[in-house]
Design a protein around this nucleic acid. Structure first.
Lengths: 341, 341
DNA sequence: AACGATATCTAAACTTGTTTAGAATTTACT
DNA sequence: AGTAAATTCTAAACAAGTTTAGATATCGTT
């Protein structure tokens, strides 16, 4: 048994005032409620002396505000998400909010369970989410109607929501365009299945449209689907087969960093040197270590810091304007190409 | 205004029973309190129908348990920590606990503030922390006396606490030993300043002891201190100077992944190829992408998954045995050398 | 002195659950 | 029939704050 926590009441008793007064002063509402300066000082110094810290649960129960924001991502160990998390947290901390991060593992049921726990029960004041859902059905629930939610990285096309995403279409278009400029005519794109996620479909669209721009016909066999649950094995079997075939490619374009890493692993295993083979290697999602990796990687870098900051602020804005009917905000941020070599 | 949340009382009214009864049934204590099976079924089905979810704050306020565990690390975007976080979360989720992750940015004041907020106010039931503190003073506070805390990655030598760490000494010893076996006699170690953190001091000790084993005298100039706040610039100026000097080295050993990355950046900038220069490059902390990086990196890999799992379980154990005087657990897990090339 | 206005403070209600102490009913047994 | 025991349930207290409505004291004014 540690020492008993100091309560509002304890301070009140010490000073012979009401706990109402103490509460008011501690919340900085002393002036608003006409508490004399002298009393305010007494309260504050006594609270400091007694090391008072409010009970967050009692406070949250009464006020309905927890000053907690939830962040739901597929996998916190993915550097893309962990960097976003870092900046979201930094931005929120400056405004007196804390962050609860949870991974869904791209599992819809777990995602929905967490949203229920967090949002429907109002454990958190707002939610930032890189959803793994296919459709917006779940988010249309009456109970979530007025809850502050900001989508990041991915949005759901069938519902109107606030979101902050990178311009996946444009980034993918520019990357493909660059590859074509370098002389590529047979660019193999590796995508994740199931690929209903908006960021991926837009990347595919950007790829296809860039081909179209140069009148290069899109070939089905140049869009390879890699199963999310089995990335490494799928890449090994499918890509290897293709590399050995007569259907020569002049570029490999992985649609996210997971697949890129799997490809690099494969190259390593079989001693394949893309650069020597005259094959460009490109990827959406930049990772800092790509700078030192062999082969050279041409990549699309997303503005993670900006995504984090904007998502945090948009969420806080929604919380402040809760109840007020505000226009939905769709933030699309530009990406940049990192053309190594 | 969304729809009003269903309360215990709402269910009670619908069924003409007391909210006490509803609470008991919902918490699975129906049998223990002798509530008839028929009534239990009625309550559960009505609760499902009305989509009841308990208010976590009211519950936590009354029970003093939040089912929340805090994880405090220097930087969640560091892959070492984000991977630990992933496994901690996974393990906790299976036991009905949720994780609150916060970054301290190696800032002691922020760390102490977060601990106050989380632990002293009992917002969380337990804390897992990679502390940035120098000494255990803060943790000796009366108010934290009986609070479940598990240290990871780093421990404080001056207090007796539960911890789960990698065997930093052994890993560093083995790595240095390997370099010596490869013929190195002048191994430059790059450390972080301030380096009071236990994991770093032990790595230094392992390095020195391995030298001693082979009667290689330790030279002060071969332990370079890099400032945490300015890693890249410090590496650039200090390491560059050394590389240009006549004091030739035959290996560079970075004591964590941050410094390793900074070195790689420098090499890239100046077009330095360690392998060609006959210099081995080694690092504590393995990152998966190291596999594809040039130069070859010999690294010490920490058992992140195991650290995460053990830390989670140890924390839950402490929570279960709260109040009971249990022996302190110090878990030291073996590392493994990844010798590329 | 009496009045309202102002300044300062407080008692009690309220947030939503959990827990305690005990009530009401039925069954069991002498 | 009457008491003890078991079964099933409930009223009220409680967790620790915030908020509301109103009390008390002081002051200025006529």
């Amino acid at each position: 048994m540690g020492i008993k926590k100091t309560l509002l009441e304890d301070i009140a008793k010490e000073l012979n005032v009401s706990k109402t007064l103490v509460s008011m002063v501690i919340n900085g509402k002393g002036d608003a409620y006409g508490i004399s300066k002298k009393t305010q000082e007494k309260v504050l110094s006594k609270a400091g002396e007694m090391e008072y810290t409010p009970n967050v649960f009692a406070r949250a129960l009464r006020t309905g505000k927890s000053h907690l924001i939830g962040l739901l991502v597929a996998d916190i160990s993915n550097p893309f998400y962990s960097h976003i998390a870092k900046y979201v947290e930094k931005e929120l901390a400056a405004k007196g909010y804390n962050l609860m991060i949870c991974s869904t593992g791209e599992n819809i049921e777990r995602e929905e369970k967490l949203i229920s726990l967090f949002a429907e029960q109002h454990m958190i004041d707002g939610l930032i989410i890189a959803t793994t859902s296919t459709s917006g059905g779940f988010f249309k629930k009456e109970r979530l109607r007025n809850f502050p939610i900001v989508f990041i990285d991915r949005y759901l096309p069938d519902i109107e929501t606030n979101y902050v995403v990178a311009n996946n279409y444009q980034g993918s278009f520019e990357l493909t365009d660059l590859l074509i400029h370098k002389g590529c005519k047979n660019i193999l794109a590796l995508n994740i299945t199931p690929s209903h996620i908006s960021s991926l479909t837009e990347r595919v669209k950007g790829y296809k449209d860039a081909l179209k721009k140069y009148a290069i016909p899109f070939k089905e066999e140049n869009l390879m689907e890699i199963s999310f649950d089995n990335i490494q094995n799928d890449v090994r079997s499918k890509l290897l087969k293709r590399l050995k075939s007569n259907n020569k490619i002049d570029a490999i374009y992985t649609l996210n960093n997971h697949i890129a890493t799997a490809c690099l692993n494969l190259f390593n295993e079989i001693g394949f040197d893309a650069n020597k083979e005259g094959i460009y290697f490109a990827s959406f999602d930049d990772i800092s270590l790509f700078d030192f990796v062999k082969p050279n990687i041409i990549s699309v870098s997303q503005p993670v810091e900006q995504i984090g900051i904007e998502a945090a602020n948009l969420t806080l804005e929604l919380i402040d304007n809760k109840g007020v009917e505000t226009a939905i905000k769709k933030v699309v941020l530009p990406t940049s190409i990192i053309s190594r070599n």
